[in-house]
Design a binder for these strands. Structure first.
Lengths: 198, 198
DNA sequence: AAAGTTAGAATGAACGTTCGAAATAATGTT
DNA sequence: AACATTATTTCGAACGTTCATTCTAACTTT
């Protein structure tokens, strides 16, 4: 009955199964969307029966919640890397990482997953809440970085624009799948530098 | 084959009903998403029976297709306004209109509708195709504007960043519904100016 | 053999869609 | 004008399908 103990006591086998389901579901959602994917298809891809998935997750909704959890915590971990960076040359380092971020966010799989999560948040208040809580964390941490280490004023406004830019990439990839990444990156850097200027 | 004639031949009553359905469906989709909305709810909001909707639309998918059509053509009309603008002071005019665009795209109803359309495109190839065709039009027209009237090189790359910014606003509103619009707009202008600089 | 694990058919609800008839409007006839 | 007839609009119940979820029995492992 004790859920917390159950989680802690998960055997390696169980943990592997959970990851197996999560990976399969993620792939399905990316390809056909949350509502276009049936439990049967997830089961097929995870190489187990549909009914069996319910031994690891209470519902289909719980699966996407777990996927969102996985994504957001990975994202928060990436954010923490920034905080341990030295102050000098921080701006250049940030621009460099931003370009890496462009590459990541324009990756078809990643951008599709982001969009799927956002789409689900529009329908599922629980997902929306998770996304907002996560956003507060990365937003305020990043703003403090700009404010304390780069000595920039109005850090919140700057962060908002930077995040808008990166969020926009997922939609951009959907509307223009074969866009010129190099050309895009060049002017994104220009935009980022402008937003980070005094 | 002539769609325009078909529309023209519709009786005022029919046109009113179609708009009634489209408006009701749009409101429902914005609030609960396409898949969270049943035909029954659309019917209730449009004040007619569910079955009757099928006299005006072949399917639920046809409704969202019509909504997308309405949105994209309104968007293309707005784009055409730019072309009739005088060359001198065009850049300032564009920045001014961009700020108006920020206001529009951060409107809760509008941003939710944009997201819903994008989300549906992820699942429905027909919608995705419509969105891409529309994107080609506004993208190339806008690029020509930058290239011919503002004499800017790499117009496509610049346009891509500008569009990324505006597309991102819809997601941003979902993640951070009560963001500070003024602070955002200030740095968006800064970013736009950087993208439009030689 | 007991406990844990798996499969796949059964269940039941939700929902898009269809259908036949009733109500209403339009047209024609005397 | 009054009536008859044809066409259009509207409704709401019924249908069929899809799909998440449950259940029971079989199978592994210890």
């Amino acid at each position: 009955m004790n859920m917390t103990n159950q989680i802690d006591k998960r055997s390696p086998r169980t943990k592997a199964r959970v990851i197996q389901i999560l990976d399969a579901a993620t792939a399905c959602f990316v390809e056909q969307g949350f509502h276009g994917t049936g439990m049967a298809r997830i089961a097929e891809r995870a190489e187990m029966s549909a009914g069996h998935i319910y031994h690891y997750f209470d519902s289909k909704d719980a699966i996407i919640a777990a996927i969102v959890e996985r994504e957001t915590s990975a994202h928060e971990a990436k954010m923490r890397e920034f905080q341990s960076l030295p102050c000098e040359n921080l701006k250049n380092e940030m621009v460099a990482r931003a370009e890496e971020g462009v590459r990541t966010n324009t990756d078809p799989f990643r951008s599709a997953l982001s969009l799927e999560i956002v789409a689900e948040a529009k329908r599922n208040p629980d997902i929306a809440e998770r996304l907002r809580r996560h956003d507060v964390i990365v937003r305020t941490e990043f703003a403090r970085l700009l404010s304390e280490k780069l000595k920039l004023d109005h850090a919140e406004g700057r962060v908002e624009v930077l995040f808008t830019l990166f969020d926009g990439l997922a939609i951009r990839m959907l509307r223009h799948p074969d866009l010129d990444q190099a050309g895009l990156t060049r002017f994104i850097r220009q935009a980022i530098l402008a937003v980070l200027a005094d």
